[in-house]
Design a binder for these strands. Structure first.
Lengths: 124, 124
DNA sequence: CCTAGTGTTATATTTTACTATTACACTATA
DNA sequence: TATAGTGTAATAGTAAAATATAACACTAGG
């Protein structure tokens, strides 16, 4: 996996796992790959994986069973809440950034539309 | 100023100064506050300010005159280009993030509209 | 010429993230 | 009960960012 060197790796791992939970790659109750395997997959150290998992365990999004593995919480409500939260955080960030660049609400929306429309030209 | 501890301060300072250039707080040819003054204003060390400025000088967005001060480039074209670049980066980021959360193009646009509409309730 | 204001650079120190390595604790199963 | 697979934790070392502090280089004005 490629990491942004401007942001802590453990933080990006959390985000990576969140996304897998949000998109259904990891479903409620699913067992995560073993920490040592995750470390290999992500080419990072076990302790770094553990740091990410530790925070997620504290938050309650995953549950740890010593000797068995780490499991996605069965609480689907928590997952949908988390997804909503991640979306709002993203929207908040663009809005604030573009607003700070003096764009009006209308300009923010239309620039996003234009960006998405223009994307079709070169991608996917 | 409040910094996000997940991202290098010098990097956030660059961004801060960019915004001032984009919004007209700093106009082409304007003299920036003295580095020691900036350090006080931002409550960081002079070397940290210097690191941010150093990169901007290399990029050509500000010009340094030893003994005189640092000045915003007179090249207005560069500034408008930079603004466009910052906007696209933001749009790219939200789009990629929300797309990764399985939202369709339409859902991305409508969620932004909803967010902006809902903002009026509690803010500004 | 001197001094105050400016940018620039260097050294040493602290803190944080990350790594490497090892050990320990628990579970399942052959 | 031994062993392999799992999570957990501790130690030591490295690197990057930021700090404190000091010195150097240039400019302008008295």
């Amino acid at each position: 996996m490629k990491f942004d060197d401007k942001v802590p790796i453990y933080y990006q791992i959390k985000n990576h796992l969140y996304h897998e939970m949000m998109t259904g790659t990891l479903e409620p109750g699913d067992k995560l790959p073993a920490v040592r395997q995750l470390a290999v997959d992500l080419t990072v150290n076990v302790n770094t994986v553990q740091r990410a998992l530790g925070e997620m365990i504290t938050e309650g999004t995953i549950e740890s069973q010593r000797g068995k593995g780490n499991f996605v919480t069965m609480d689907k409500n928590r997952i949908t809440q988390l997804k909503e939260q991640l979306i709002v955080e993203q929207l908040e960030r663009v809005y604030n950034e573009l607003h700070a660049l003096n764009l009006t609400d209308e300009q923010i929306i239309s620039s996003l539309k234009t960006y998405i429309a223009g994307r079709g030209q070169q991608h996917d």
